[in-house]
Computed example of a mutant assay.
Amino acid sequence: MLRLGEDEFLIAGKGIVVTFETVAGDERAGVESAWEGRFEAGRWIPGRRLNGDQTHQGRHIRLPPDQFGVQRVRLYRY
């Protein structure tokens, strides 16, 4: 996992599930958006935008066990 900014991450690999939480005990973190994609010549090329079925209604990111994947994820706090 690579942190791109305050609430934005790149997650790469296969066969993993990633959940998020905040440092502050009075806040929670959810997945605002998640995009599958790839890099070409150092540039991010977005693919399919994932919806609530793929992010478990914004609770986690899952990379399937049978293939390498990259997802760009933005979080929100509530």
Rank of each mutant, 00 (worst) to 15 (best):
T19M: 03
V17K: 06
F68M: 13
H56Q: 09
D7Y: 05
L10V: 00
I61L: 10
E21A: 12
R48Y: 14
H56N: 07
R43Q: 07
R3F: 11
I61A: 00
P46M: 13
Q67V: 04
G30S: 12
G37Y: 02
R72Y: 00
F9V: 03
R48W: 15
L63W: 04
Q54D: 12
L63D: 05
V70R: 10
Q67L: 12
F68E: 15
F68I: 09
F20A: 13
A12K: 08
A34N: 00
V31E: 00
E6W: 12
W35C: 07
K14R: 15
I61W: 00
G69Y: 02
A29Y: 01
V70I: 15
V17A: 10
T19F: 03
E40Y: 03
T55D: 09
E36C: 09
Y76Q: 14
D26H: 15
A41R: 07
G5R: 10
R48V: 13
I11P: 05
F39L: 07
G42C: 05
G13V: 14
F39I: 11
D7R: 15
E6Q: 15
N51K: 15
D66P: 07
G15W: 11
L2N: 10
F9E: 03
T19N: 06
P64R: 12
T22W: 01
G30D: 06
L2H: 08
R72I: 03
P64E: 15
N51H: 14
Q71T: 09
P65C: 02
H56W: 10
R59Q: 11
G25V: 08
L2E: 08
R48I: 12
I61N: 01
Y76L: 06
Y78G: 02
Q57F: 10
V31R: 00
E6K: 14
R59Y: 03
G13A: 08
E6C: 02
L4W: 00
D66K: 10
F20E: 04
F9Y: 15
E32Q: 13
F39H: 08
L10D: 01
M1E: 08
S33I: 04
F9H: 14
V23G: 14
R48L: 13
I45Q: 15
G52P: 06
L4F: 02
E36A: 12
R72K: 07
V18T: 12
G25I: 04
M1H: 06
E21W: 06
T55F: 05
R62S: 13
R3L: 04
E32T: 11
G42Y: 06
N51A: 15
Q67P: 01
T19Y: 02
W35P: 04
V23F: 07
R74Y: 01
I11G: 01
P64G: 11
L10R: 08
G52S: 04
R49E: 10
